[in-house]
Nucleic acid binder design. Structure first.
Lengths: 338, 338
DNA sequence: GTACAAGGTGGGAACGTTCCCACAAAACGG
DNA sequence: CCGTTTTGTGGGAACGTTCCCACCTTGTAC
């Protein structure tokens, strides 16, 4: 069917072993044989069959990215999509191809698939159910988790310093003179939302401003709709509370809240300052643009692939936890004068 | 290393042929042998090796998605990401795994990779350079193009009815009573931007309202920044023109324009109505939310995989062009009363 | 009782590589 | 000039499947 090493060998008048040596550059080959073979390969556009290679080397040079999300399509997700992009870019540079799979029904189907395809390693994104993790553990594939959430230590994780980010957000608002804070905190079962809230609270507490429980509401999902709904539901309470700043544990929730404020003609930032977290692309597009804590998704993706590659190559003892530093991005939604 | 059919055979006291028959369900097997083998497979969590299977069947059950974009990370792209999501979902349902690759430098690297991995088929997204297409043609892999732009007929394409969409946009604005239209038209080398503008113009022309050349500006890329810059640059001209409606050939450009309007305190929709095209997720989130023409990305992704599968299975004579219907989505940016 | 189909099984080639090994010729050191 | 290294080559096993084929046992029809 498709061109093989044997065919190349025949045309060059050498054995397949010689062709193999030329391609891999290992072992002895005479310059003449080398040139001849290379010329024919070029001429016929021969591409080595990675399947056959994988067969003998027991390495596919493929990695799998597994994302489970119930509430959102995944690749186009404004935050997770960025991580996937970074993974793709890094992986390509390291000669890995990437299988991307999403599962909405929390089944083991995708994981199964990846095992059958004999990926060299697996990157798990977001909160995987423990049963999926346990399942994956059963096989011998290296894997790690990005922006995950699990009690299972022993799993290598790449995370953002969320608590630190929460503190930065608090410090920024505090520095602008705000003293009454209203918080929309996404699902607390998820590590990042939990820590962002925690950091935010701690920082303010250390300034002598504890945040009362009544000042925090909990959207049940980290989505625009939930941010919108929760802000609407608590709007009267919010209005009455004399709050001058709103912090949401991610940008989409913040956007939902801002939509409600716009609806009620509350001026941002003049009457209320708003901050999000993540720095999704939309944050710059709306008016006022959103002040936020940028998660270094680029770095997270790069680290994920780099670490996974090490695991695959059985390199070095690994750090169990890799943390990347978030960064305050000041935009219009917390501007003071203009 | 990893569990093989041979091992299963040994444990079940049968030959590997029998195990193979049990797994595939083809050929004769006694109930006893079947039960025994199945039980052992279950017990040991044996997963057939897809690499070995591919070796003999000459089918990998993998497909590749190739996206070339110079100006934007790709998977997280608010529009293309949605297409990828739909592809992923459909492919999973048809037992295909999906390699996703992005190339920023227009090289042939990704294409090469996919060929080596022996994907069963290829989905090309957006405008591929002709040299990439020619290169791919050299191999025998089935492929098709989604939302592409090429003069090369003979390529199977899945596209949105962009001209129709342009007409729908025009009709909507016309119906609201607008008569002076300002247009931001993305790169005219790209089929979709070209047709959207064309449809918009034609529809209005048929109503006796030709759009003057001076009413159309051309962002050099279909991005927020370019929309923003072009609107800014032509703002005085725009103001002086008495325009009451703005149409942009995609949402991100429209968003850029709206940002400028917000900056100048021009009220949308009260003073100026704005329409975009695509219906990216963010269109609902900003205030005012954006009226747009929704592209059925879901359907495009599904069609792409379904068609590709047919090509792979050498099914039926194919339609060369599959068009999906866009839909007007009315939101706040063109609302009349409130 | 013979023939022949149906049910059930296992052996082995093939898929396209890599890599080990055997071998041969040339180069080189004493 | 002989042994040993260096350079170069090709054959063949192995990787884990599928699938063809040969074979063996029953059952059944005549």
């Amino acid at each position: 069917m498709s061109l093989t090493i044997k065919e190349i060998a025949a045309r060059a008048g050498v054995s397949k072993s010689t062709v193999s040596r030329v391609i891999s550059g290992k072992g002895y080959t005479s310059p003449e044989a080398r040139d001849k073979v290379q010329q024919i390969i070029e001429e016929l556009q021969y591409k080595p069959n990675a399947v056959a290679r994988a067969m003998v080397s027991q390495r596919t040079n493929n990695i799998g990215v597994l994302i489970y999300r119930r509430d959102h399509p995944v690749v186009s997700h404004p935050f997770y999509g960025k991580i996937v992009d970074a993974i793709l870019a890094t992986a390509a540079g390291m000669n890995y191809s990437v299988f991307v799979t999403t599962d909405h029904d929390m089944s083991l189907r995708s994981a199964d698939f990846m095992m059958e395809k004999r990926v060299d390693g697996l990157i798990l994104i977001s909160r995987l159910q423990q049963n999926v993790i346990d399942y994956i553990k059963n096989f011998h594939v290296p894997y790690l988790m990005v922006n995950g959430s699990t009690d299972d230590d022993g799993i290598i994780q790449i995370v953002n310093r969320d608590e630190e980010g929460g503190r930065k957000a608090a410090q920024h608002l505090y520095g602008l003179g705000h003293r009454r804070y209203f918080v929309l905190a996404g699902p607390q079962a998820h590590r990042s939302h939990f820590l962002r809230l925690k950091g935010f609270r701690c920082q303010l507490a250390s300034r002598g401003i504890p945040i009362a429980d009544e000042s925090v509401v909990y959207p049940s999902a980290s989505t625009f709709e939930e941010g919108f709904n929760m802000m609407r539901r608590h709007y009267e309470h919010f209005r009455a509370g004399g709050y001058t700043a709103v912090f949401a544990t991610n940008d989409t929730i913040a956007l939902g809240a801002m939509k409600v404020l716009a609806e009620r003609s509350v001026l941002v930032p003049e009457q209320v300052a708003v901050m999000g977290f993540d720095d999704i692309e939309f944050a710059t597009m709306l008016t006022p643009s959103l002040t936020t804590i940028r998660v270094n998704t680029e770095e997270m993706g790069r680290q994920a692939v780099t670490m996974l590659d090490r695991l695959i190559r059985q390199d070095v003892p690994q750090a169990k936890l890799i943390e990347v530093e978030p960064k305050l991005i000041v935009r219009q939604s917390t501007a003071t004068n203009n």
